[in-house]
Design a protein around this nucleic acid. Structure first.
Lengths: 344, 344
DNA sequence: TTGAAAGCGATACCAT
DNA sequence: ATGGTATCGCTTTCAA
């Protein structure tokens, strides 16, 4: 790989001049400029970004830490960050946290080692204290999908509690009175918040959720199948289910249909996240849209603003996002007869 | 951010010594080692990876270029690369090509600027010549999902032609005689190769594909729906469809069922790729598994071996991958009566 | 075992 | 308009 010195020597100028040309510097005669550019092209010279970063003390990479890349949800998150970095001519340095606190921390350390000062991290494993300490060390650190009160101005998060309430209201509005819920056994706060929002709204309407109609399983297609089986096995009637996420919802629907129930004719099902899957499933899933890509873009812009000490638009209220109900085919008005059949 | 000098000054030693400690150097008394480590911890010192790369001329990042992050297929690819980089304590530098030759090239240039010498790139837009030129400049460049003869030893690819043949054999073995095909209008070679393999095998069996039963559309759910409509509109009977990818297959199934055909009872459908979707759709999709993650891992290992001038395991034959038939629920033995109904 | 100093590739200040 | 050179943070001989 040729260096600035090579270019300078061959072009018969100093490295300073080459540097000026490479950076569109202010004072270079168009003649030498042309000459240098020609040599640069001939040599296939590309400035060494690392050396540049060293002397300018500015880094053009932005770091992302997510649990894993394979999950479409996180891929969308990364995609949002990528779009903004591209706009700012910065590059993505991506590390995965692999679902353990240790490797999450290690991923961040690696980014720090690269002197990456803008970072968007999705952490479910690190403690609040660790996150707070980290954000003090790293000016441009923004937390996504999690709310930590002490550093609220650095958190872009979704109101899961409100999401639960929205789901409840939707089902209630359709006339459902016998409700069930499928939740996840993993993750930190999200399942609990969603469930709490759901029950909270139900209680407010005087239609409490039967404890026995809460099934808990892994947040996957299989988990949804298992949970639905358990719900059915309880022998209790229900005409609608609020499910932790779309994958589980699709699994649940599968089990319900295998057992002779039609969705939504007999039982309504509402998911959460609005991932690609939900548009491909049949019936198409009614769900709550999690605007992860929008949030990721916002997080990235915020992180960028933080390192540039820019006036961070002070509408901190907008750091919180509310999921949006996406009505598709898996929910419908309560069919009383069907509910009675359930009682058989 | 504290530097090696800070540590040296405070610990009362030279930077050379600190460097030795940081790199587990050979000759340091355990006493000074301890002392230095203590200071490093206190200062929260992390060596600057860029400076290190500058002097050692070794980079610990590996670059990936994919069209976009949002597509689950490419996310799996990135995931494979990430796993191997993690194993080698290297970090992912990710750029997206955004489906244009220009930005694909730009993405690669950025990687080169970072002196990233190991890279896995998925390019559909760059010409063979450009790829060849690139691979000469960049020792550790490996092409994935594409075969370029002149640099065959740097290509990890899937035999799409063979995939088409496998699909044909499967359908033929189920007794289907009236076949249809849905292909994609975009992408460079893949659709054509798959279709050619398919027709090739059919011709060999004396059951040629009716030209009018080839529908072409965008490689998406909607595209699949449109294509299936066109197939139906042709008025020609068919009992099985080979579809370009899983998303289109699911769209096609949707249209077929809306028109009163049952899958697979009346019409069998086979997809391609075996993405997550195919396991979630109902009926679960029979498809051809594209082992993209395995391929990505292999590509990464190969790229790594290339820069280390290692003996690249000379079984170049294994650079080619064959898709594997995954028999699920969307294909079944040909139901003659149903086919006749089609003729109505 | 430890330190001094050269040098990696670039920028930017100070001269000229 | 151009060149000389100190400097960024680190590794790596070479001496001591």
């Amino acid at each position: 790989m040729s260096t600035i010195k090579d270019v300078a020597r061959i072009a018969g100028v100093s490295v300073a001049t080459v540097s000026r040309v490479a950076n569109n510097g202010p004072k270079v005669s168009s003649k030498t400029k042309e000459k240098v550019q020609k040599i640069m092209a001939e040599l296939g010279y590309t400035p060494n970004a690392n050396a540049r970063a060293l002397v300018t003390q500015k880094n053009t990479t932005i770091g992302v830490v997510i649990p894993e890349l394979n999950d479409p949800f996180f891929a969308s998150l990364a995609n949002g960050v990528e779009q903004i970095s591209r706009q700012h001519n910065m590059q993505l340095l991506l590390s995965t946290g692999q679902l353990s606190a240790e490797s999450e921390m290690q991923a961040i350390d690696l980014l720090v080692g690269r002197r990456c000062d803008v970072m968007v991290i999705h952490s479910k494993k690190l403690s609040d204290e660790q996150l707070i300490a980290l954000s003090q060390r790293i000016k441009g650190l923004v937390i996504i999908d999690r709310y930590v009160a002490a550093i609220a101005e650095r958190c872009i998060w979704l109101d899961n509690f409100e999401g639960g309430k929205i789901a409840a209201r939707h089902l209630l509005a359709l006339g459902h009175k016998n409700l069930a819920c499928i939740t996840s056994k993993y993750q930190i706060d999200d399942p609990e918040l969603r469930l709490n929002g759901f029950t909270n709204e139900l209680n407010a309407s005087g239609i409490p959720l039967d404890e026995q109609l809460i099934a808990c399983a892994e947040p996957s297609l299989q988990g949804g199948e298992v949970a639905a089986q358990n719900l059915l096995a309880s022998g209790k009637p229900f005409s609608a289910i609020f499910v932790y996420n779309d994958a589980m919802a699709i699994g649940a629907i599968s089990t319900l249909e295998d057992n002779g129930y039609r969705v939504p004719a007999d039982i309504s099902v509402i998911g959460f996240d609005d991932v690609l899957l939900s548009r491909y499933s049949r019936p198409k899933l009614t769900t709550l849209n999690y605007p992860i890509e929008v949030m990721a873009k916002q997080a990235t812009s915020l992180a960028l603003a933080l390192v540039n000490s820019q006036e961070v638009a002070s509408q901190s209220s907008t750091l919180k996002h509310i999921p949006r109900l996406v009505k598709r085919e898996s929910t419908n008005i309560c069919n009383v007869k069907a509910t009675e059949i359930n009682l058989r």
